[in-house]
Design a binder for these strands. Sequence first.
DNA 1: ATCGTTAGTTCCGAAGTTCCGAACTATGGG
DNA 2: CCCATAGTTCGGAACTTCGGAACTAACGAT
Lengths: 112, 112
Amino acid sequence: MRPLFHPAIEDVRPEAILHALADPARAAIFARIATAGCVEACTVLSTVGDRVIPKSSLSSHFKVLREAGLIRSERRGVEMRNESRCAEVDARFPGLLAAIMSAYAVRSDPAA
Amino acid sequence: MRPLFHPAIEDVRPEAILHALADPARAAIFARIATAGCVEACTVLSTVGDRVIPKSSLSSHFKVLREAGLIRSERRGVEMRNESRCAEVDARFPGLLAAIMSAYAVRSDPAA
DNA sequence: ATCGTTAGTTCCGAAGTTCCGAACTATGGG
DNA sequence: CCCATAGTTCGGAACTTCGGAACTAACGAT
């Protein structure tokens, strides 16, 4: 298993963030990591909404989020700890994550 | 030639906007339409940075922006007028476009 | 009217990306 | 040591993107 790659915050590119969050499943995973105490293992969230996501797909979603600079992942024994890099990303691209997350919230809002 | 499709603002989905703007070339085209008096024809901007974009690719970039709800295009004789739908999009997803555009500006900022 | 020019679209093949099941690797417990 | 669990990698099918060539549509000049 190759080591986990995390870009330095100054190497994080906006197109990678937009690409990562342009997938609603990935955006939902990220939202859960960002809100749920900033730590969540992989198979804890093997469903998004009512949709089951296969392990291999989940693994690559995490990889995309990690390589976009949105989360930091660490192997802890047999499982993985993921925490969001919201604070760092927000310092570099102020307001970006908040605006994206609230855009998704608008869409799922029945009043919208 | 089939007619140009524009989604109603309430049908605009955040993932479509993120996907459209996740491509730096498309984001640059959109930025030019949004800032340059909100009207710009296609071949006026056949280059992005120092990169030449073929007509067929340009045409599909415009289509992606249009169908994401970011621009409104109208055939005016032999050419096309494009105007941004910033105001509508901003009313639905407040701050989203501004945050994305300033994220790209950070990236191209030599001090970043 | 018809020709030429300019603006943009469509078609289609090549190249690249995404999805997901199956096989694999790594860690920890009994 | 063997098993179970957590996650990764592989590989093929389905989908997307890119760009050149052929096409269409509008306008002006003759």
